[in-house]
Amino acid sequence: MVEQTSPDWTLIPGSSAEIEQVRERCRSLVRRRAVMSAGASAIPIPGIDLMSDVGLLSMLINDINHEFGLTPEQIERLNPQFKLMAYRAAVGMGGMLVGKLVTRELLVHLLKRSGVKIATKQVARFVPFAGQAVAAALGYAVFRQIGYQHVNACAAVAQELTAVRPR
């Protein structure tokens, strides 16, 4: 006889109020990491900002997934029905990083989707002082936008799972 394990709901925020608290904590984390990204963008060495952004984003995405109970390991602890719901909700919300193992290639693809801002940032860094400020501002904006989108996708998935959560 195969023993059926019960889903570990304690990892996922249990109410709309808890989801909102986690969302705000994560948005604060996004802003702090975006400042770090902006600092790397201000350094006038081509490529250093992209390497920095990939590392910072990787940690950020994993931290956000963990806060919402949506890392691959946490989702794996749910029973198959709820795992499927989590992944369907993530796809439906456009959350391509929700519940996924974050790879360098996936992050570079995501950053390339912000192409115009990245290209502008690269060109701007060659204009002394003002260009570095523009590059830093664009770096902050792009990083924050990607982070906020991921926070919103995770919150939406958590909200969907909360709606079907057994009481």
Results as ranks from 00 to 15, higher is better:
residue 147 G to K: 05
residue 147 G to A: 12
residue 50 L to A: 10
residue 44 P to L: 08
residue 67 E to K: 15
residue 125 R to P: 00
residue 74 Q to V: 09
residue 114 S to F: 00
residue 37 S to M: 09
residue 49 D to W: 00
residue 107 L to S: 01
residue 129 F to D: 01
residue 115 G to L: 12
residue 34 A to T: 06
residue 6 S to Q: 13
residue 111 L to C: 06
residue 134 V to S: 06
residue 94 G to T: 10
residue 49 D to F: 00
residue 105 E to W: 01
residue 140 Y to S: 09
residue 95 G to N: 05
residue 68 F to P: 01
residue 56 L to G: 04
residue 53 D to I: 01
residue 103 T to H: 03
residue 117 K to T: 01
residue 136 A to P: 08
residue 67 E to I: 11
residue 141 A to D: 05
residue 155 A to Q: 06
residue 72 P to D: 03
residue 92 G to F: 02
residue 95 G to A: 10
residue 84 L to R: 12
residue 71 T to D: 06
residue 26 C to F: 01
residue 103 T to C: 03
residue 29 L to H: 08
residue 38 A to Y: 07
residue 13 P to C: 07
residue 42 A to H: 07
residue 23 R to Q: 12
residue 17 A to L: 05
residue 71 T to Q: 08
residue 128 P to E: 07
residue 31 R to V: 14
residue 140 Y to V: 04
residue 72 P to Y: 03
residue 51 M to R: 03
residue 152 N to A: 15
residue 116 V to F: 10
residue 57 L to M: 15
residue 69 G to V: 07
residue 101 L to A: 11
residue 124 A to P: 00
residue 159 Q to S: 15
residue 154 C to T: 04
residue 46 P to S: 11
residue 41 S to F: 04
residue 130 A to I: 15
residue 56 L to Q: 05
residue 72 P to C: 03
residue 100 K to I: 03
residue 142 V to I: 15
residue 31 R to C: 08
residue 131 G to S: 08
residue 54 V to R: 04
residue 63 D to R: 14
residue 20 E to R: 07
residue 155 A to I: 02
residue 43 I to Q: 03
residue 83 K to R: 15
residue 77 R to W: 04
residue 55 G to F: 05
residue 167 R to E: 12
residue 14 G to V: 00
residue 116 V to H: 02
residue 121 K to P: 02
residue 11 L to K: 10
residue 18 E to H: 03
residue 164 V to K: 12
residue 4 Q to T: 14
residue 88 R to I: 06
residue 147 G to N: 07
residue 159 Q to A: 15
residue 86 A to F: 09
residue 164 V to T: 10
residue 127 V to F: 05
residue 84 L to K: 14
residue 28 S to E: 09
